[in-house]
Amino acid sequence: EVYKVKIKIERVLPNGEKVEEEITIEVEGMSEEELLALARELAAEPGVRIKEIEIEKLPP
């Protein structure tokens, strides 16, 4: 199964400015739980906050 994972994050820059970013990846052969863990890892940097995680199962 192939999933499209869209992660919206908010990053706080050293000057205090907040910037929103969106990361989209396609992943194959992982469960939804593994995808959530991967998304959290991607956003685990200091000053980064996850705003939204969207997981979509793509048709075969």
Rank of each mutant, 00 (worst) to 15 (best):
I7A: 01
I55S: 01
M30S: 11
E28Q: 11
I25V: 05
V27A: 07
L13F: 14
E21Q: 12
E10F: 02
I53N: 00
G47E: 08
R49C: 11
V48G: 02
K8F: 10
E33V: 15
K57T: 08
L36Q: 10
K4H: 05
E21A: 05
M30L: 13
L42D: 01
E45M: 14
I55R: 02
P60A: 08
S31R: 07
L35Y: 06
E45N: 03
P60D: 10
S31H: 06
E52Q: 09
L38W: 13
L13N: 09
E34V: 05
E21D: 12
A43N: 08
K6N: 06
V2T: 09
R11C: 03
E21K: 04
I55Q: 01
A37D: 10
P59D: 10
I9R: 02
V5C: 12
K6T: 08
R11W: 04
A39T: 07
K8Y: 10
A39Y: 09
I25G: 03
E17C: 13
V12E: 12
I7V: 12
I7D: 00
G47W: 05
L35M: 14
I25R: 11
Y3V: 04
L36N: 07
E20K: 02
L38K: 11
V19D: 04
T24F: 11
I55T: 02
V27M: 11
M30Y: 07
I23V: 10
L13Q: 11
T24Y: 11
I53W: 04
G29S: 13
V27P: 01
P46A: 13
A37T: 09
V12L: 09
L13W: 08
R40F: 11
I50G: 00
V27Q: 04
E32F: 07
L13E: 04
E41W: 03
E52V: 07
I55Y: 05
V12R: 07
R11V: 03
P60Q: 14
P14G: 10
K51M: 11
E41C: 13
V19M: 08
V19Y: 06
E1W: 09
A37F: 15
P46I: 06
K51T: 13
P60F: 02
I50L: 09
I25K: 05
K51A: 05
L36H: 03
E28Y: 06
P60K: 01
E17F: 12
A39W: 08
E10A: 02
K6E: 01
R49V: 14
R40S: 09
I23D: 00
E33N: 09
E32V: 12
I25M: 13
G47I: 01
E33C: 05
P59S: 14
V27G: 06
E45W: 10
A39S: 04
I23L: 09
E45I: 07
E56T: 15
G29E: 10
A37E: 08
E54Y: 14
E20G: 04
P14S: 11
K8L: 11
L58W: 09
E54K: 10
E20V: 04
E21Y: 08
E26C: 06
Y3E: 00
L42I: 09
K8C: 06
E34C: 10
K57W: 09
E34H: 05
R40T: 15
V5N: 00
L58G: 06
I53L: 03
E20S: 04
G47L: 02
P60R: 00
E21C: 09
S31F: 10
E34L: 13
S31M: 10
E26T: 08
E17S: 06
L42P: 01
N15K: 02
R40L: 10
K4L: 12
A43P: 02
E22G: 03
E1G: 15
M30D: 07
E1Q: 12
I9K: 01
A44E: 07
P59I: 15
K57H: 07
R49E: 15
K8I: 09
E17I: 14
N15P: 01
I9D: 00
L42K: 03
T24A: 11
L38D: 01
I7Y: 03
M30C: 15
E32G: 06
P14W: 15
A43E: 09
R11F: 03
E32W: 14
E45V: 05
P46K: 09
R11S: 02
K18A: 06
E41R: 14
E21F: 03
E22H: 09
V5F: 03
E20A: 03
L42H: 08
E56C: 04
E10Q: 03
I55E: 00
V12F: 13
A43F: 09
G47Q: 04
E1C: 15
E34Q: 11
I53K: 00
V27H: 04
T24W: 05
E1I: 14
E17M: 08
I50Q: 00
L38I: 15
E33S: 15
E41G: 08
P14Y: 04
A39C: 10
Y3A: 03
E10M: 02
A43Q: 05
L36T: 08
P14V: 12
I9L: 10
V12C: 06
G29I: 07
K51N: 04
S31Q: 09
P59G: 15
P14E: 07
V2K: 15
P59H: 08
N15M: 04
R40M: 09
I50R: 00
K18S: 14
E26P: 02
S31K: 09
I23Y: 12
P60W: 02
I7W: 02
G16H: 04
I25Q: 03
K18F: 15
R11G: 01
K4Y: 04
Y3H: 04
E56S: 09
L35F: 04
K6L: 11
E32P: 15
E41L: 14
L13C: 04
E56K: 09
V27N: 03
R40K: 12
T24N: 07
K18Q: 11
E54N: 15
A43L: 07
R40Q: 10
A44V: 10
E33K: 06
M30R: 14
E45G: 06
V12Y: 08
V2A: 14
L38E: 03
E54F: 13
K4T: 09
K8D: 01
I55A: 01
L35E: 00
V19N: 05
N15V: 01
V5Y: 03
L38G: 02
E32A: 08
V27I: 09
E22S: 07
E54M: 15
I50H: 00
G47V: 01
V19F: 05
N15L: 03
I55M: 05
E56V: 09
L38Y: 12
I53V: 06
K51Q: 08
I25H: 03
S31D: 13
E33T: 13
